[in-house]
Design a protein around this nucleic acid. Structure first.
Lengths: 134, 134
DNA sequence: TATAATTATACTAATTTGGTATGATTAAAA
DNA sequence: TTTTAATCATACCAAATTAGTATAATTATA
């Protein structure tokens, strides 16, 4: 289970903006966080689509966190990697994998996924940065 | 965070052997679990090195779980994928990533990893199969 | 009108994953 | 003692994913 650089950089972006307590340009964040600018641009776009942040175009524009106090690790990873955990045994599509019905192995994986989703959903970035918890 | 087919098949192997309650040949397991034989052979080798199972060569040989009651999801994934969760920000090597000292983002990732490791370590396959818990 | 920003999309390179292939080794049975 | 049935050790390859670049369009301000 690998953490991608997309999520890695996405979290850095969120932390950066929270600490700054306002807006910034993508360029500023990329430079300060050591992330390739073009790459960061694309990460920002996905986060905007997921409504983690909003943006303003044109000179003087930039990005702002939408609801800082509600951003969890789960949201960031889902926005950038699509799924939090990807189980490659052909889930909802059914048709494939004849073993699916009453597959004990699969039940164990689903248990794992549920646990990870709950846990990631409970990791509130703002609370951690503000030292409210943990 | 993707689950690999190696871990997927490794867990199937463990469940198969537990239900059978004894030994089997790699070929038997591969056929019954719908896994390519040569691939399963390599998975078995890594699990043997991790002492999840033992093997006997030659005609009449096969594989057996070593301590079925102690096998967790953590052990299986670590044996087959190396790390449970891989954080690509150059950890123990230090030298790389000048941001490392007091990096809040990294602390959050380490918190996640710790949580996942604890959780996976608590998922005991035998207990689940025997319906002792869960 | 120039400039500084985001947006959209296409492309490419590197790495990882998933799987094959080949041959050696071991041990039991014929 | 030879055949057969099993694991063991490596090397190889192809497909998919990930990481990152490139280009041009759009938007808004100065």
């Amino acid at each position: 289970m690998g953490i991608t650089t997309r999520s890695l950089y996405g979290l850095r972006l969120v932390v950066y903006l929270m600490k700054k307590g306002g807006s910034a340009t993508v360029k500023e964040v990329a430079e300060n966080e050591g992330v390739p600018y073009r790459y960061m641009e694309r990460i920002v776009q996905d986060m905007r689509k997921a409504e983690i942040l909003s943006s303003r175009r044109g000179r003087g524009g930039g990005i702002t966190l939408v609801n800082p106090e509600k951003i969890t690790l789960k949201k960031i990873i889902q926005a950038l990697d699509g799924k939090l955990v990807d189980l490659p045994c052909f889930p909802e599509d059914s048709s494939d994998c004849s073993r699916l019905i009453d597959c004990d192995a699969r039940k164990i994986w689903l248990k794992l996924i549920e646990g990870i989703e709950d846990f990631c959903g409970s990791i509130n970035i703002n609370n951690i940065i503000r030292r409210k918890y943990g």
